[in-house]
């Protein structure tokens, strides 16, 4: 991790320690752990009874009930799980836009979520998605040890299936951090991400210039990923058209997220790096104060 990113990551991780991940309403699954799961397991906490069916473990038959009622019932207990958080960060070049804090804020947000996961004793993993999807080495550990491959993807998100090559934990909570500024239907991406997840959060992290272009006059715009040029005259009308399109994009993603009970969270990179205020994630029920 280069120095330019390590400091905001450390700051964000420190800020994230004030939070813990909030368990979603749909109980997340995971490996056998110390938290109760949503299905029957082997914990000591009673959950329910049910009729005995052949094949059930005879050790779970409640013999006292059989003695009183002459019925064979099986005693069910809650399973004990360790919830998991998968953080997927867009590694395309647009996330390292020159003159913006998108790269620092995206990895910093990932670090803050990692801190919140650690506080909640969740396991976690970090993935870089985009032109090539990879699990970030060291992503389970301290953020300072993350071997982040860099924001080098020339290909916008979605051209490669977002989960391709990744072993996302089933029934885990998944968080996608991206600017979502690509011309693609969000549903294939959202549906793939939501498949097998207990909860999905999509954080649209925009630079302030993405959210509200400040320029005026004649501009030669250069696409940070493809290098394509476009010459525009920036005025109030152009700004209005741009914001309308951005709003339309957000609505498309928000609608896709709602179809899978997911949430779209809109954040500004520069605002985030100013004070690492994560209350917006609390309001979205991704975090809670620890």
């Amino acid at each position: 991790m280069d120095d330019a990113l390590s400091k905001p990551i450390a700051t964000a991780y420190h800020a994230g320690l004030a939070y813990a991940l909030l368990r979603p309403s749909r109980t997340p699954g995971g490996m056998i752990g110390e938290q109760l799961g949503s299905s029957a397991g082997s914990s000591v906490e009673f959950m329910d009874y049910r009729e005995y069916t052949p094949g059930d473990d005879l050790r779970r038959v409640d013999w006292s009930v059989y003695g009183r009622t002459d019925r064979l019932v099986v005693k069910l207990h809650r399973e004990e799980v360790t919830p998991h958080l998968d953080i997927l960060v867009d590694a395309s070049r647009s996330m390292a836009l020159t003159g913006s804090d998108k790269s620092a804020s995206s990895l910093g947000l990932a670090a803050a979520l990692s801190a919140a996961a650690d506080n909640a004793r969740w396991s976690r993993r970090l993935y870089a998605v985009g032109e090539e999807n990879i699990q970030v080495p060291g992503g389970e550990g301290n953020p300072q040890g993350w071997a982040w491959p860099g924001f080098d993807g020339r290909q916008p998100l979605g051209l490669t299936p977002i989960t391709a090559g990744l072993k996302l934990r089933r029934r885990g909570v998944r968080v996608l951090i991206s600017d979502l500024l690509f011309d693609s239907d969000p549903w294939p991406i959202i549906s793939r991400l939501a498949e097998g997840a207990s909860a999905l959060f999509v954080v649209q992290l925009l630079a302030s210039q993405d959210a509200d272009p400040p320029w005026n006059g004649d501009l030669r715009l250069v696409d940070s990923e493809t290098g394509l040029l476009r010459e525009v005259r920036m005025d109030s009308a152009a700004r209005e058209r741009y914001l309308q399109r951005l709003q339309t994009l957000r609505q498309q993603w928000s609608a896709a997220c709602r179809r899978v009970d997911g949430r779209l969270i809109e954040m500004i990179a520069e605002d985030l790096t100013d004070n690492w205020d994560l209350r917006q994630l609390v309001e979205c029920e991704l975090l809670r104060l620890s």
């Binding site: 500024l181 006059g217 030669r220 493809t226």
Partner: peptide
């Protein structure tokens, strides 16, 4: 024309 890099051109 002033050169300005943007995240994406499609907007």
């Amino acid at each position: 024309f002033r050169r300005q890099e943007v995240s994406s051109l499609f907007l």
